[in-house]
Write a protein that binds this DNA or RNA. Sequence first.
DNA 1: CGCGAAGCGGGCACCGTGCCCGTTTCGCGC
DNA 2: GCGCGAAACGGGCACGGTGCCCGCTTCGCG
Lengths: 203, 203
Amino acid sequence: MSGEATRPRGGVERPRERADAARNRARVLAAAEKVFAEAGGADGVTMEEIARVAGVGRATLYRRYPDTASIAQALLDEHESEIQAGILSGPPPLGAGAPPHERLAAFYRALVGLLERHLHLVLGAETGQARYRTGVYALWRRHVEVLLEQAHAPTELADTLMAPLAPEVYRYQRQVRGLTPEQVAAGLDFLSRRVLAGNPAER
Amino acid sequence: MSGEATRPRGGVERPRERADAARNRARVLAAAEKVFAEAGGADGVTMEEIARVAGVGRATLYRRYPDTASIAQALLDEHESEIQAGILSGPPPLGAGAPPHERLAAFYRALVGLLERHLHLVLGAETGQARYRTGVYALWRRHVEVLLEQAHAPTELADTLMAPLAPEVYRYQRQVRGLTPEQVAAGLDFLSRRVLAGNPAER
DNA sequence: CGCGAAGCGGGCACCGTGCCCGTTTCGCGC
DNA sequence: GCGCGAAACGGGCACGGTGCCCGCTTCGCG
């Protein structure tokens, strides 16, 4: 939850957010964080439950969020844009300045960190086919595609290289297979090097 | 539905399937195939809908299948075990006798074929966290793990290499990115060679 | 300090689920 | 063939969640 202020959504002019509205927004997000954490994902999470824990009416939720997935997404936004900033303007190897395979490995490490810390939220944000709808997926995908280009590897692999970051995959590796985050990251590190490193200019 | 006979589930002794039960089983499966195909996945598919199309009561469905996912799974079973048979006792490169990277590529090609032909069913079988529950996932995963061992690559990559075969990933590549099945297979071919081929015994 | 507007939440109708139980149908044994 | 026990069937019901409507409350600008 990291004390984030109300933040009336920067962009075009906006009437201004009323104090009670801001208070409820905070309540809802805090409640959602708690509910998703307890459920360990999206399984038993309903709009009703979140409203009950937040102490607000259901309609108050529906005013801002159409479903539980978009609440989880709102909670993830700040963490995701942190990584996005690191890619665009942070220091290497996540940011520009390192060879492609190191940048990919750094990207994987950052995402494994996000999954480890907020797995329940990422799972909660995946209801339906939501993943490919969020703007951030397209941005990350594009980042990987550029790295593939730079390494002279087929850009068709972009989604393939994104696939291991699906939250259900991470969850399975951690909870069923018993892998540590370090083992997962190490595997992805190996993958990065093998796919992107030392490419003989492909044909 | 490819004239498959009643098949009273081989195994231990079983009372024998009544004629009306067999007839209804066939009706249900035919209806489910149709409904999943029309919905293009699991989205609007309910037990009620399948029962209606099959012309049976809802309770008749619940007798055999707890939810829509397990109906889709039943429809997939024969196709999946075909591939499984090819891995265990078919000719190379899918079966034994080829180098690991060729076997992995052949496995990918077989799965891409399955996804291309029955995507709506694989999507339908994924409701909830069902994928990792089906026996066949564990078998395929183990197959990949053995190939990794043989190539002296880290076995932690097993789930990572399985991840691109998730139906939502395939769907996204086909329908949003506009890739052809051949392009997807070619990408996975590249991946197979890079990860498994010519490993210098690691360390 | 009053008033227009935005925010709020109880309530309701709908849909799908999951199960129970009375009725129908099968097919074995005579 | 024919009756009877057992299995299968399906209509119906209660429950829980959704999504929306509408009267009430609260805010904050002038």
